[in-house]
Amino acid sequence: MNTNILPKFFAEFLGTMVLVLMGCGSAVIAGANGTTGVGLLGIAFAFGLSVVAMAYAIGHISGCHINPAITIGMVVAGRMKSSEAIPYIIAQILGAIAGAGILLLIASGKEGYSIAVNGLGQNGYDAASPGHYSLLAGFIAETIFTFIFLLVIFGATSTKNIHGGFAGLSIGLSLVLIHIVGIPVTGVSVNPARSIGPALFTGNIAISQLWLFIAAPVLGSVLSAVVWRYLLESN
């Protein structure tokens, strides 16, 4: 691996690890209803705040993609070389697996925890959907939510944006918004790595449904990149 990519590789690895550990961790450890739980809104903010924190921690190193869909979108939008995208995506997937593994070790420290019952923050549709939404509803939601998320990222990080210093905040808050609406539908992925990590540990239905949480976010990111590059910022 080119030594120039190593800092970016490790930044993406660590950033994605934090996203999965804190985001999914909020659902597994702190998301229960009741006086000790943070609820849906708390989970939504955990994911968004993870992105905000990592944007300011590693954004100057790798751009803080921490999401294969973002990396692919950046390539399609002409903001990144395809050769550099491959190590980014590898780092993101490995980081997500590490984050899910750490979360499992922590969650398993509580008596009564069962990955089969309590899960690991994995995504799903139909019977595996938090609100029992269908495959079609899940696919549409993941595609459109990723489309919107990437539009915010393209706009917030554009050289034409005079408020670029707040890019991390706007991107993180957009992810909060997406989670507030989307958690009941699929648990919200908009990030293939975020789905792959927990699914590898939970197995079974999470693995069989994983294709949707890879295909839909990638489709949404490509559509967003095309719209941004050729329609919105074509001049």
Rank of each mutant, 00 (worst) to 15 (best):
P68L: 13
C64L: 11
A57H: 14
S83A: 14
R79C: 03
I72S: 10
I61Q: 14
G63E: 00
I61W: 13
P68G: 14
V75T: 06
M74G: 08
I58R: 15
T71P: 02
S82P: 09
A69S: 13
G78S: 04
I72D: 08
S82Q: 12
A77Q: 07
I72M: 13
I72W: 03
A57R: 13
E84R: 15
A77D: 06
M74I: 12
G73I: 01
I86G: 03
A69T: 09
V76N: 02
V75W: 01
C64K: 06
T71Y: 01
M74F: 14
V76Q: 00
R79P: 01
H60P: 07
T71S: 11
I86R: 00
V75H: 02
P68Y: 04
I72V: 15
A57I: 13
A77R: 05
G63V: 02
H60K: 08
E84T: 12
S82R: 07
A69V: 10
E84K: 15
P68W: 05
G73H: 04
H65L: 09
M80L: 14
S62I: 02
V75Q: 00
T71I: 10
M80H: 10
R79G: 07
G78A: 03
A77S: 12
S62D: 10
C64E: 10
P87W: 06
N67H: 03
I70A: 11
R79F: 03
K81E: 11
C64Y: 09
S62W: 01
G78L: 02
M80F: 13
A77E: 05
M80I: 11
V75E: 00
P87T: 07
M74E: 09
V75R: 00
I66G: 03
C64A: 15
T71N: 03
I86C: 07
S62T: 09
G73Q: 05
S83R: 11
H60M: 08
S82D: 10
I66C: 13
I58Y: 15
G63Q: 00
K81R: 12
A85H: 03
A85S: 11
G78K: 02
E84G: 11
A69D: 09
M74V: 13
H65K: 06
